[in-house]
Amino acid sequence: MKKLINLRTMRLALVALLSVGIVGCAATTRNIDPESEIHYDANYDFSDKKAIVDDLVGSLLTTTQINTSAGKPILISYGIANETSEHINTGGISDDIRLKLIQANKYRFLNREQRVNVNAETEYQQAGYVAVADQVKIGRQLGADYILAGTLRSIEKEQPRQWRLNKKRLVFYSMNLELTNLETGEISWADNVEIARESSQPIFRW
C-alpha cells in the first residue's frame, strides 16, 4: 500500500514538474502599459526616457525665467549629446521634449533637420515650375530666440571582485537641459534629472 502511494505521488510530481516545464518554456507576447515603470537591468530604457522627458518638460512649462509675455518663444533644438557608456539614441529624448512642448502650446519650434529640404523645396518653387501666386516668399522664415540643448551623462560602478554569489552594478544617469538666449548668449534656463539604479545578477547559472 505504502509503495503504491509512493509510486502515485512520484508520478504526480513528475506530471506537475513536466507541466511547469512546458508552461515555463512557452513563448508569450503581451502588451504593456507605456506608463508603467519596467526595468530588466540597470541600463537605460524607455521608462527612464519617459521620466526624463516628463520632468524636464514640466520644468520648462512652469518656469518663470523665460519671458513669454511678448508671445511664444521660438526654440531651435540642437539635440542632446550622449556622454554615457551606452549607445543611446538621444534623438528620442529631444523629439519627445519638442513634441510635448509644441502640444502644450507655450513654445514654437524651428525644424533644423528639415532645413536642407525646406531650402530645396523653396528653390524648386522659385525655379518657375510653380505659379508665382503659389510660391512661398523668401525671407519670411522665423528666427530662433533660444537654443535648446542638453547632455546625458552616466557614471557606472561595479562591485569589486570578491567571493560572492551576485554581481551588483550601480548606474547613475544625469540629464542636463538648457535654453541659451541667442541674442545675449546667456543660459536663460537650465534643469536636470538624475536617476540612480542598482542591479544584481547571479554569478552562477545553470
Partner: peptide, 17 residues
C-alpha cells in the same frame, strides 16, 4: 561588433552545466 558586445554581456556568468 555591437552584437559581440551584447553576447559578452550575456555570457558574463559562470554556467554550472
Amino acid at each position: 561588433l555591437l552584437q559581440a558586445s551584447s553576447t559578452l554581456e550575456q555570457l558574463d556568468f559562470i554556467s554550472v552545466s
